[in-house]
Each structure stands twice: as structure tokens, then as C-alpha cells.
Amino acid sequence: MQIEGKRVLLTGGSSGIGRAIAAALLEKGAHVVITGRRRDVLDAAVGELQARGGTVHAIGADVSDPAGRAAMLDGVLEHLGGLDMLVNNAGGVRAGRLEETTEAEIRAMVEVDLLAPIFLTRAALPALRASGDGLIVDVASAIALIGIPFYATYAAVKAGLARFDEALRRELVGEGVRVLTVYPGATDTPMMRTSRAGPEVGFTKEPAEAVAQAVVAAVLADAFEVVRGGEVRAQMIALNRTDPLALDRRFADLKPALAEAVRDHAAL
């Protein structure tokens, strides 16, 4: 898919991976509408992105709210006159032991990380079909591929999004709309600021810009997935299929340190 001139709606675009993807798409000539809940942060992001050149607009709305999703679609059609690419990036996380995670926190992850992208995609499909060259990009997580202790609910919703993408990709074959799933690893973003997990427990953070460049490359190549983490991640994914108990043993050794490192990790 060529990016120049494409009309993009990108949720959670005020910071982190979302803002980095917006910047990378703008550099390739896309026209972008970003969304977010905090107007001040959103306006700051727009100012920074506009300084790079290109067309960028912002819509302050909550992706978990039906009215917010409607405002996003109405806004992108008003600002850009159509929609070629939907990037479902907005997300939230609460780590820790399951029994210490509140029902409200669990529901928030389900709403924002799974239901919101499903509902927004459903609502956006007519506009994407009308494009004739539509693309849905969903930002999942490497935790969707390898379940990590203390991220049970987050793993569930991100894995659910990944399987949603797989099924929808096959549902839309030959209909002018493709699906791309992105599996970032630990990334240096505001979402990770409350996590103290580092390389000693397997969390080596990469810049959000590296993820964004990989996404752009995948869009240009008509790929269906982006898996970050290099050969180490690929080996873990393979081991998780062939000998999952080996990973159980590895995580058992890391559990005490990991529990302490992520117990305050929250971004909802």
C-alpha cells in the first residue's frame, strides 16, 4: 500500500507509539487525524507533528465511549473527506496479580484494548470499503504471543485482538480492505513509566520510533503482521509452541523479581 495521500484515523495518537506512527506516516505523505482523551496533551502533539509538515488534525474523544467513537469517524470524514487507514492504537494496562486487580481495572482493559477497536473497526468498515484500498492496523502486544506472569488480563485482551484480526483478515480477503497486526515488545513510552521491569526480567525497551518505522515498512510491503523483539523473541515464540513448560520454568525463576518490578505498572 502506498502511503502518500492516504487518509488516516489513529487512536491514542497524543504520545508513545501512536504519536510515533503518526509522525512516520506524515513523513510519507499521509493525512492524519489523531485522537486522545486529554486535550492538552493532544494539542501539544498536534503542534509537534505540524512542525514536521503535513496535514494533521486532532479529535478529543474517549475510544471506549460510543459517542467518542462516533465523533472520531465524523471528524475524520469532515477533516479529510474519507478514510483509507484506521490505526487502533489506544490502549491501557494494569499489571499485578489477578486477585489484586480490581474489577474496574479488568473492565477498563477489556473496554479499551479489545471492545473499542472491534466497535470502531465495525463502524469504520463502510468508509474503508469506499476507499477501495483500505487498511486496518491494530496495535496488539508481544504479550499476546507469549503470556507473561502478572499480565493475565492484558494478555487475554491483546490475544483476543490478535485473533479478531486474523479472522477479520480472512473475512475481508478480496474486498479491498486489509488487516495488519502489530506486536510491540517493551517500548519506551509513557505507558511504561510506572513499570520498573528491565533487562534482568526480560524487558528491554526500544524507542517508539523503531516500532513506527517497522509499521510503515509493513504497510508499504502489504504485510499482515509486525513482530518486534528480533531473534530472541522469535526463539521464545517457537519455544512457547514446542516446549511451553520450559518457559514456565524460566518465568518461575523470574517471578519474585518480576512481581516487584511490575506491581505498580498501571496506565488506564
Rank of each mutant, 00 (worst) to 15 (best):
M1A: 04
G5L: 11
T11D: 03
S14V: 06
I17S: 07
R19K: 15
A20M: 12
A23V: 02
A23P: 01
A23T: 05
L25K: 03
L26P: 10
E27V: 11
A30H: 05
G36Y: 02
R39V: 12
D40R: 13
V41T: 11
V41S: 10
D43Y: 06
L49V: 10
P66T: 14
A70M: 03
D74H: 07
L77S: 10
H79A: 01
A90Y: 02
G91C: 11
G96A: 13
L98Q: 06
L98H: 10
T102M: 11
E103C: 06
E111G: 05
D113E: 09
D113S: 12
L120F: 01
L120Y: 00
S131C: 09
D133S: 04
D133E: 06
D138N: 15
A142P: 00
A142D: 13
L145Q: 01
I146N: 12
G147L: 09
P149R: 07
F150G: 04
Y151W: 07
A152N: 01
T153N: 13
Y154C: 00
V157E: 13
D165H: 04
A167K: 03
R169I: 09
V173E: 14
V179I: 10
T181E: 10
T181Q: 05
V182A: 11
G185I: 05
P190Y: 02
R193F: 00
S195T: 10
A197C: 03
P199F: 00
P207N: 04
A212N: 00
Q213M: 08
Q213R: 13
A214S: 13
L220N: 09
L220W: 11
A223R: 13
F224W: 11
E225W: 02
R233F: 13
R233P: 10
M236H: 05
L239M: 10
N240G: 15
D248Q: 15
R249K: 14
F251A: 09
A252Y: 09
D253I: 08
L254K: 05
A261V: 01
A261N: 00
